[in-house]
Amino acid sequence: MNDEYAGDSSQWAFGTGFEDPLAGVDTTVPPGVDPAELAAYCLMLGDDALIMSQRLSEWCSRAPDLEEDIALANMALDLLGQARLLLTRAAAADPGVVPVLPEGSPVPAEDALAFFRDAEQFRNVRLAEVENGDFAHVVVRLLLFSVARLAVLERLRTSPDQVLAAVAAKGVKEVAYHRDWAGRWFLTLAQGTEESRRRLEAALDALWPYQAELVAPRPGFGVDPATVRDEVDAVLDQVFAVSGVERPDRAPLPGTGGEGAHTGALAALLAEMQVVARAHPSGRW
C-alpha cells in the first residue's frame, strides 16, 4: 500500500522530478560569455515573466467571461514557465545570485530566487508590477509587454547561450499568442462601446509612462532592448492606427527596474507571493 501511494513518482500526473527544469540541456556557459552578465540578463527576463505572471494570475476567477478567465490563466502559466527556466538558468550560470538559505534547506534555486529576494533585488520592469486595474488595464499592459518581449525573444533565439536560445524559441510561440490576444481585445474595446473606449484610453494613459522602460538601453550580454525600439514602435503604431486610438503624449518615468527602480506595488506583491515560502525556509513542497 505504501509503495502504491508514496513510492514511484512517475505515476503522479505532475511527477515529482521537476526539481531541475533544465535537465538534459547543455548548461555550460559558452566561451567568451561572462557568467555574471548572463545571470543578470536571465534574472531581468525571468523577473519580468514572474511578476507579470503573478499579476495575471490575480485575474483567476475574476474575468468578464469564462473564456477570458481561461485565456488569462494560460498566459500566466506560459510566463511562469519562462520564469522558472530563466531563474534556474541564472542560478546555474552564477550561483552567487541565489540567496543563502538555512543549511540543509531543500528549497531549489528557482524558489530561493523567487521567494527569498527583497523588492530592491528584483530586476523586472515596473509595467509588470503595478497593481491590476480593470479589464482594459490588463489588455493594455499585456499589449505593451508582449510586443516588446516578443521582439526581444525573437532575437534571442540565436543567443550563444543554448539555454537562453531554447527558452526564447519556446517563448516566441507563447508570447506571439499573448500579443495577438491583447491586440484583438485592444481593437474590440477601442471600437466596442463609448464606455469601453473611455476605459481603454484611460488605461493606456495610465500605463504609457512605463512603456519606454521596456525598450531602454541595457548594455552587456544579451539582446539590448533598445535595439528593438523601432520595431516595437512600428507594431504599436499599427495597433493604434487600426483601432483609431492616438498614441499617448506622456513623458516616460525616469529610471529602470533593471537598475532597481520600483514602485511601492512590488513590495506589496512580494509580501503576498512570498509569505508561505518565507514562513517555512526549510519546508518541502
Binding site: F14, E58, R84, E110
Partner: peptide, 13 residues
C-alpha cells in the same frame, strides 16, 4: 498568489 514554490504555483493555477 501565495503558492510556496513556482512548481506548486503552476500546478495550482
Amino acid at each position: 498568489g501565495r503558492a510556496p514554490s513556482l512548481r506548486r504555483k503552476a500546478i495550482l493555477l
